[in-house]
């Protein structure tokens, strides 16, 4: 779900930065409006970002290969409007520390992962509609859906970008097959990510529900 360096045309990379800049601006504005001292949320958002960063390095075996978590859904759920800056920060650190590459595609990747994260947050807020009796089941279900949808959207965007912008000589049928294949390859990840997120939100609901509600 990562668009590497050197693949997409520079116009797409630039567009990615423009879009990421816009979403960042919007996020910062939302954060500023919600707070008297916006910077007081920084330690919390950063520490949680560090947790997500480390968690995204854990691999789960899915024969014949293994997947690692993206956590876009969970980040959206927990961080709210901080999710987008957090993802930007995470991707930048990944480029610096691991050189998964991605400096030129930082904007594109931030959008691919970050916009679904913000959507996941919207999806998750639907849980307030559940009554107290079905609160736990509803929270878990929405956690799963939010994470699955976030992964699916990200995978769809990444696959479309890679397949349509890379080789200029594939015909439409091949392209469509490639996109579909890439999408289906992400289904196990979506399921694992959904389960993982559902368990984490249930855990938080039981132990520290404030973390799911607080819009710091």
């Amino acid at each position: 779900m990562h668009v590497p360096d050197g693949i997409v045309p520079v116009s797409v990379a630039a567009g990615g930065f423009a879009a990421a800049g816009g979403v960042t601006w919007l996020s910062l504005r939302k954060i500023e409006r919600a707070h008297t001292v916006p910077r007081n949320g920084v330690p919390k958002a950063s520490l949680l970002t560090a947790v997500f960063f480390m968690a995204s390095l854990i691999h789960f075996p899915v024969p014949p290969t293994s997947v690692h978590l993206v956590l876009s859904g969970l980040m959206g759920v927990v961080l709210g409007w901080y999710a987008f800056p957090a993802i930007l920060v995470g991707l930048f650190l990944q480029a610096v520390m691991f050189q998964h590459g991605g400096l030129t595609t930082l904007g594109v990747n931030a959008c691919i992962i970050g916009i679904p994260a913000l959507l996941a947050h919207r999806v998750f807020t639907l849980r307030t509609r559940f009554g107290a009796r079905r609160r736990a089941a509803g929270t878990a279900a929405l956690g799963f859906v939010a994470a699955f949808v976030a992964v699916a959207l990200g995978a769809a965007a990444a696959s479309l970008l890679i397949v349509t912008t890379v080789p200029a000589h594939l015909d439409a049928v091949v392209e469509r097959t490639a996109v579909t294949a890439l999408l289906f390859a992400h289904v196990p990840l979506g399921v694992i990510e959904g389960m993982f997120t559902a368990i984490v939100v249930l855990f938080l609901l039981r132990v520290q529900p404030g973390l799911l509600e607080e819009r710091f």
């Binding site: 560090a50 984490v200 973390l211």
Partner: peptide
């Protein structure tokens, strides 16, 4: 997931 949940709470 439990480990990550615990880390989130501790970090918070």
């Amino acid at each position: 997931a439990y480990i990550i949940g615990s880390l989130l709470i501790r970090s918070n």
